[in-house]
C-alpha cells in the first residue's frame, strides 16, 4: 500500500509540475522553479515567527507570497535594470535565500526549523502523514489529497487560459498590440508556479520539484512540435518517471527522490536520441530529394 501512495502522490505532483514546466521551458524561464524553491525560505521563517506555530497553512501562505515576490523581483531586474534573465534569477534567489538563513540563525533559539527539513521534503514519508477526520476515518495520506486538488486547480487554469498562455508565450508583443493584459498572464503563471513549487517541495523535496518542472517538459519538447502534444507527453513522462523511479529505488534500496529524478533524466536522454535519429533521417531524405 505504501508503494501505491508514494507513486500516486509523486505522479500527481509530477504531472502538475510538468504541465507548468512546458510553459516555463517555452518562455525560457526553466530555472524559475529552482529560484522559488530556495527563495521562499524567508517567507517560511517569517510566517513561523508571526504565527508561532509549525502549522502547514501559515507557512504555505508565507512561502507562496514570497514565491510570487521572487518572480516580481526577477521581472524587475530583467525589464527595468536590463539584466539578463538568468542573472536576475541568480541574484534574486540567492539574496532571498541568504536572508532566510540569517533569519534562522538570528532566531535560532526560538525557531525550531531545520533547513534540511524545510528544503528537502522526503517522499518516503508520504504514507506516514495521514489525514484522519474528526470521526476517526482514515482518508489516506494528506499529500495525496493536497496534490490532487492542486492538480485540478492547475489543470483548469491551463485549460481555461489555454489561448492566453499560448499567445503570450509565443509572441508577447503581438499580444500587447491586441490589447491583451500580458502582465496578468505572466503573473498568473508565476503564481501558479509559486504555489505548485511550495506545495510540492514540502512533500517531495526541492530537487525533485525542479526536475519535474524542467525535465519531462524538455524531453517532450524534443520529440513533438505541437503544444498540446507536448503537454500530454510531458505528463506521461512524469508519471513514468515516478513509477520507474520508485521501483528502481526499491530495487537498489536507495533514495526514492533521487531514483525518480534519475529515471526522468534517462527518459530525457531517450527522447534526445529519438530526435537526433529523426533529424538525421530528415536530412538524408532532403539530400536524396535534392539529388533525385
Amino acid at each position: 500500500m505504501d508503494a501505491f501512495w508514494i507513486i500516486l502522490s509523486s505522479s500527481l505532483i509530477a504531472v502538475t509540475c510538468s504541465l507548468l514546466g512546458c510553459y516555463l521551458v517555452l518562455r525560457k524561464m526553466a530555472m524559475i522553479g529552482d529560484a522559488i524553491s530556495h527563495a521562499v525560505l524567508p517567507g517560511i521563517v517569517i510566517a513561523y515567527l508571526i504565527s508561532g506555530s509549525r502549522e502547514a497553512l501559515p507557512m504555505l501562505i508565507g512561502a507562496a507570497i514570497i514565491g510570487v515576490f521572487t518572480t516580481v523581483l526577477i521581472e524587475l531586474f530583467y525589464k527595468k535594470a536590463k539584466l539578463q534573465i538568468d542573472a536576475s534569477i541568480g541574484i534574486t534567489f540567492t539574496w532571498l535565500f541568504a536572508i532566510g538563513i540569517i533569519l534562522i540563525s538570528l532566531f535560532a533559539g526560538q525557531v525550531d526549523l531545520d533547513q534540511d527539513c524545510v528544503l528537502y521534503g522526503e517522499i518516503a514519508y508520504v504514507p506516514l502523514d495521514l489525514w484522519i477526520t474528526d470521526a476517526g476515518v482514515n482518508m489516506g495520506p494528506r499529500t495525496v489529497w493536497i496534490s490532487a486538488s492542486l492538480l485540478i486547480l492547475i489543470l483548469s487554469f491551463i485549460i481555461i487560459g489555454y489561448k492566453g498562455l499560448f499567445l503570450t508565450t509565443f509572441n508577447e508583443e503581438f499580444a500587447k498590440a491586441l490589447g491583451i493584459a500580458v502582465g496578468f498572464w505572466h503573473y498568473s503563471l508565476m503564481s501558479a508556479v509559486s504555489l505548485t513549487t511550495v506545495i510540492s517541495f514540502e512533500s517531495v523535496g526541492a530537487i525533485l520539484v525542479v526536475a519535474f518542472l524542467i525535465v519531462p517538459a524538455s524531453a517532450a519538447y524534443l520529440i513533438t512540435h505541437k503544444l498540446k502534444e507536448m503537454l500530454i507527453l510531458s505528463a506521461i513522462f512524469s508519471v513514468l518517471s515516478s513509477i520507474g523511479g520508485y521501483y528502481l529505488a526499491a530495487y537498489i534500496n536507495g533514495s526514492i527522490a533521487g531514483a525518480i529524478a534519475s529515471v526522468a533524466g534517462i527518459l530525457f536522454l531517450f527522447c534526445w536520441l529519438i530526435s537526433m535519429y529523426r533529424k538525421r533521417n530528415n536530412t538524408s531524405r532532403l539530400i536524396l530529394n535534392s539529388t533525385s
Binding site: 517555452l26 508565450t169 509572441n171 512540435h225 505541437k226 503544444l227
Partner: peptide
C-alpha cells in the same frame, strides 16, 4: 522577434 522553434 519570435522563436520559430515554438511547438505550433
Amino acid at each position: 522577434s519570435v522563436d520559430w522553434d515554438f511547438p505550433a
